Simulated assay, not measured.
Amino acid sequence: MATNPTSNYHHGNLRQELMELAEQHLIEGGIGDLSLRALAREIGVSQTAPYRHFKDKNALLAALAIEGFRRFFALCEPSEREPRADKSLLMFGLAYVHFAKTHTAMFHLMFGPVLTPRNEYPDLFAAGREAIYKVRAGVERGFKSGELRELDDVASIAHTVWAAVHGVATLMLDHADSYGYHRDLDLQAEKSLRMMIAGLCVDPEHIATLPKVATPMPIEN
């Protein structure tokens, strides 16, 4: 008797295949109708096989969002190695904007309303916390070096920086027709971030003298 290939458990790296296929659907805008059973059919495994790795679709999407944070953190590494606090924050902001532009669907999954409340996804919640901790670390370095003005406590300033950076990224993605210096969105984003950081600096003129920051390298999936 012939065996139905989808009736057997998939012996490869099914978890990774599910995530890759789900990301493909995410990019193509099709996660609304996505289901683990549908992914199983596409891959060619039994409809119960995906449940060995994810309890439901949202668990899969949460894992995908965590992978998005991993890629984002890789982009942030140069900013964390930069000793000057003002340049470090600028580099972080530009990496954030670059990630939003090049991984737009993933960015919306990571920061959008699909996976809420976040406390239902502890690993994803922790990844989000790590993102703000990176900003806090930059602000703390600036306080210790005397480069940044202590306008408020570290947490408040870090959240203000994050709000500004996220606002720039969101405007670029959702309002590109009205945001941009002579339609140059990259230039406007850098101008906006430099102005914001200058307001935190003891010597605001220094941020203006920093050379243009190189575009972050593409992220390997």
Rank of each mutant, 00 (worst) to 15 (best):
T102S: 14
E120P: 01
G128C: 02
N119I: 05
L94P: 03
A126Q: 10
K101W: 12
A105K: 04
K144M: 09
R129W: 01
F125A: 15
V97I: 07
I132W: 11
Y96G: 00
D152P: 06
E150L: 09
K87E: 12
G93C: 05
L89N: 08
E130K: 15
P113N: 13
R149H: 07
D153A: 07
V114H: 08
K134H: 07
F99G: 01
F92K: 01
G138L: 09
R136S: 13
G146E: 10
I157G: 04
R149F: 04
V114N: 05
M91L: 14
G93V: 03
K144S: 11
P117L: 08
E130F: 04
S88K: 03
R118L: 02
T102A: 01
A100S: 15
A155Q: 11
S156Y: 04
T116Y: 00
F143G: 13
L148K: 02
L151V: 10
D153K: 12
L151A: 06
V114T: 13
H103T: 02
A127D: 02
F92H: 06
T104Q: 01
A105G: 03
L109F: 07
L115M: 11
R149D: 06
S88P: 10
L89G: 10
A137G: 11
G112E: 02
F107P: 01
T116M: 00
P117C: 03
F92V: 04
A137H: 13
D86N: 14
A137Q: 10
F107H: 01
G142D: 10
A158V: 02
E147S: 14
Y96W: 10
L89E: 09
F107W: 03
Y133A: 14
A126K: 14
V154K: 08
L89S: 11
V139C: 13
K134C: 06
R136C: 07
F92N: 08
